[in-house]
Amino acid sequence: MPIRCEIVSQDRLIYEGDADTVVLPGIDGEMGILPNHAPLLSTLNYGVVRVRYQGNEEAFTVAGGVVEVQPDIVTVLADRAENVREIDISRAEAARERAERYLEEGPPPDSDAYLRMDAALRRSRLRLDAVRRYRGRGGRRPDIPSVLEDN
């Protein structure tokens, strides 16, 4: 029996569907959730949520958030989330460079701008990491348009 999985970010519904396993970046390390899991409430780290269903795997980057697990449903409330397939590599790359350059200039480390840039840097690194690891594993997710694989 599959478990239902719903991923929402603050500005939209990202994913809704069945899953055999859901792997989550919990605050104390990765957690794998199977159907009939005991109720659980956890905060999430920056990381990748992987939803596996009938041999297919979808990956989503999340930049922190909360997950609620019920025996029949996993609800991910992410601060920001994206399907790895939707990530725009050139944009993420540009954002990373911009953030790195800014941080090298050495603004006061506790200013708002610094913290914002630091968060932006972590997000873009996470995106690029996720793309490298979860895209282009041919075969497993045949529905990915090949254009994306060329990147």
Binding site: D28, M31, A38, P39, L40, S42, T43
Partner: peptide, 12 residues
């Protein structure tokens, strides 16, 4: 039994 909390009940 109710929720399992990660990290801790109070924090979350």
């Amino acid at each position: 039994a109710a929720y399992i909390y990660e990290p801790g009940q109070e924090e979350i």
